[in-house]
């Protein structure tokens, strides 16, 4: 991948295009001009790569890295929302405070369960869809675009629609379920139904997107793998399980990581799904996620310091996930 060509071109013969030049006679001024040019050239070659990448890094440090680290610092202070610049040292009190809070653990559990209920079906359906999209299809582009329509829909719009669809008395979902003999489910107030409903918003928005990612990976699988499998008499089903799936392992791992990170941050869906329009994730915090709990502590209860402690805790959890991912992918690579 490393290309060397870009350094190959420069100095020796300047302006290489000029064909005939009277040999030998080089004035002193010309000589100086050449050294100056070649010095400028070398400086350009040496420093412009940094000039090209530095805007990204500077802005990222300003708006990403620095705030992230500063969150850790703020988490050791008492900071009120009303006076966000006034920080009082608090040591680890914010942490003991949230770890003593049942609602923190409740939110952590909810984040985990909503994460599982949303990620697992989403990725499995995406895999199946990608497999089907990978056939020779009429209007294949049409289906791909349609599957992506939910991705174009914002969290806000999607959540508000799903509130109505999942309405207890007049919602479409309960109406459809009554044909199956299932009574009215209180999708907003009961614990598991509400978590399923919130997860449904996430599944709806992201399944098509993940299907496209899997589809891209499937199209990159060398055709001769299938051909030799077919020669060995493998059915299509067997080909899927013995050729497609193993080849997709890195991609599957990647989507798992991305979805896990996304699931750890869920905020807008439970916020807008709440019938009480609060930030507690339902009257009994039944679907409050860590993201929502952070918002409640910081912007409703006005304790920015405590909210920082929650953010920093979430960050540490993500680091653990990252390490686990790294270990698994190393295993995978070693085994294949």
């Amino acid at each position: 991948m490393a290309t060397r060509h870009d350094t190959a071109a420069p100095p020796a013969k300047e302006g290489g295009a000029a064909p005939v030049r009277p040999p030998a006679v080089v004035t002193e001024a010309e000589q100086r001009r050449r050294t100056r040019l070649s010095r400028r050239w070398r400086r350009d070659m040496r420093w412009s790569p940094y000039a090209f990448v530095s805007p990204f890094f500077l802005l990222f440090i300003a708006f990403g890295l620095f705030p992230l680290i500063y969150t850790g610092w703020a988490s050791l202070h008492t900071v009120e929302l009303t006076a966000p610049t006034d920080m009082q040292w608090a040591g680890l009190r914010n942490y003991t405070r949230i770890f003593d809070d049942d609602f923190f653990w409740n939110a952590a559990r909810n984040t985990l369960t909503i994460g599982i209920i949303s990620t697992v079906p989403q990725l499995m359906m995406a895999l199946g869809l990608a497999h089907i999209l990978n056939y020779r299809l009429r209007a294949s582009i049409f289906y791909r675009v349609v599957m992506l329509a939910p991705y174009a829909t914002s969290i806000a719009a999607a959540s508000l629609v799903f509130v109505l669809l999942f309405g207890r008395d007049y919602g479409m979902v309960n109406w459809a379920l009554h044909f199956a003999g299932i009574g009215r489910i209180d999708w907003q107030n009961d614990k598991w139904p509400s978590q399923i409903a919130v997860s449904a918003i996430i599944v709806w928005r992201w399944t098509g997107y993940n299907a496209l990612i899997y589809l891209a990976a499937m199209q990159a699988i060398p055709q001769d793998l299938y051909e030799s499998a077919a020669l060995d008499g493998a059915s299509r089903r067997q080909q899927f399980f013995h050729v497609t799936l193993p080849q997709l392992r890195p991609t599957i791992l990647f989507t798992c990581v991305v979805s896990t990170i996304g699931a750890s941050q869920v905020f807008g869906e439970p916020l807008l799904f709440d019938a009480n329009k609060g930030a507690s994730g339902g009257a009994e915090h039944q679907f409050q996620t860590l993201g929502l709990y952070l918002y409640e502590q910081g912007w409703v209860n006005q304790h920015l310091g405590r909210a920082s402690a929650i953010a920093w805790t979430m960050f540490l959890i993500l680091i653990v996930i990252g390490i686990v991912n790294y270990v698994i992918s190393r295993r995978l690579r070693a085994s294949s």
């Binding site: 089907i132 299809l137 349609v146 098509g208 077919a230 299509r236």
Partner: peptide
Amino acid sequence: RAGGQAYAGPFAYAVLVLFSIGSLFPLVWT
């Protein structure tokens, strides 16, 4: 033709149509 190059059968189209309806329905219903 093996694997990804196979022609889709009616079942595949049925699944796709179902998912397309699922994708579009909440939007239309809005």
